[in-house]
Design a protein around this nucleic acid. Structure first.
Length: 354
DNA sequence: AAGGCGTGGGA
DNA sequence: TTCCCAAGCCT
């Protein structure tokens, strides 16, 4: 009798949320953008900011950026009033720079609405940079709205719980449906964060710690014996290797920097002039001058690997170049170069000093 | 609707 | 070393 009840309860979707929330009450990660136990609700600005930073980005990487942004721009109005160049430079190194461009556009849109974020999923979804996931996450975490919050963690947890083996991204509809089945009406924000914490600390991609999982008794993937094989993902394409050149043009302790066009690769970021390797030529492709080779920077982007030949010119009067700004080499950190160019700058400085 | 779009860390 | 992955969005 009791055995039969356990059997029928085993894969009951409604049993998931209570168990998970009980686990979360004890094991929730303490993160800077989360409310402390007892605090009523999280600041929508901080929820939104952290969620955008966390898109495709690890908690560890986000930490210092979140601290820097909230200290410098404590409210969405402060951020809306900031100079583009300052925000882009502050984002430098975090990657996916369209996020920073959308962040500013969103902050200004919210400022135009009186500095108050929309409090519904639909309203949030209309803002720049808020897709299906982020709109749901902010609605749930900042406003307590029931929302089906599906990120990579939730995909993994749900694919395992329900043993969904249709390969992603095609299987997303099935995953989303299943996620909807386990999402409770109450404690929406806690539930969303609990799913993500479970995925990040227990139901990990490679070696899930099923022994520690509060949902192990509910998990079809585990019952079938190999939860780590889920979710199934489509094979990735091989990355091509691209070649390019970047130019270090120095005069009187200052180096010539350009600002890249506001769209496409590294859009809106300060950079060294280059020969157009990113297929978004910056006008420096025809640079002439007395160059010498300064080594090769290897850098891996999402969809290609780059071998960037660094060219140095220390007699810039002989170089024809377009517009740009001369930046003190000793303060190059403050320029906010994306990592590939920060690497090149480091190499150039070592070259000229050595 | 498939592909563009960064980066750093872990296995 | 190499590969995979991380709180996705936009076009």
């Amino acid at each position: 009798m009791q055995a039969r009840e356990e059997a029928t309860a085993k894969f009951d979707p409604e049993a998931i949320a209570p168990r998970l929330l009980g686990w979360y009450d004890v094991h929730a990660r303490r993160l800077p953008w989360r409310k402390l136990p007892g605090e009523a609700r999280q600041d929508p600005y901080k929820v939104w900011l952290s969620e955008v930073m966390l898109q495709q980005t690890t908690v560890a990487a986000v930490g210092p950026y979140f601290a820097k942004f909230t200290e410098r721009w404590p409210t969405v109005g402060d951020l809306a009033a900031a100079d583009d160049a300052d925000v882009m430079a502050a984002w430098a190194g975090l990657g996916y720079y369209a996020r920073a461009r959308n962040l500013l556009a969103c902050a200004r849109a919210v400022a135009a609405m009186g500095g108050v974020f929309p409090d519904t999923e639909e309203g949030l979804r209309a803002l720049p940079g808020l897709g299906e996931y982020t709109a749901a996450a902010v609605a749930a975490i900042a406003f307590g709205r029931r929302a089906v919050v599906v990120d990579a963690n939730v995909e993994r947890v749900v694919a395992r719980l329900f043993a969904i083996d249709e390969p992603l991204p095609g299987g997303r509809a099935a995953v989303r449906f299943a996620a909807g089945q386990v999402t409770p009406d109450a404690r929406a924000g806690d539930f969303a964060q609990a799913m993500m914490d479970l995925g990040a600390t227990i139901c990990t991609a490679r070696s899930p710690r099923c022994m520690l999982c509060p949902l192990s008794g509910q998990c079809r993937g585990l019952a079938e014996g190999a939860p780590e094989r889920l979710p199934v993902k489509a094979a990735k394409k091989a990355k091509p290797v691209r070649q390019g050149r970047a130019y270090w043009i120095e005069r009187g302790g200052e180096v010539l920097l350009i600002t890249r066009p506001g769209h496409g690769m590294l859009g809106g970021m300060r950079a060294l002039p280059d020969d157009g390797w990113s297929a978004k030529g910056d006008g420096a492709a025809a640079l002439d001058g007395a160059w010498h080779s300064g080594g090769v920077v290897r850098h891996s982007f999402t969809h290609f690997d780059l071998e960037l030949q660094l060219m140095l010119c220390l007699s810039p009067e002989a170089v024809s170049h377009g517009s740009g700004e001369w930046w003190p080499v000793d303060d190059i950190e403050a320029a906010g170069l994306p990592t590939v160019f920060a690497k090149a700058a480091r190499m150039a400085i070592a070259e000229r000093n050595g």
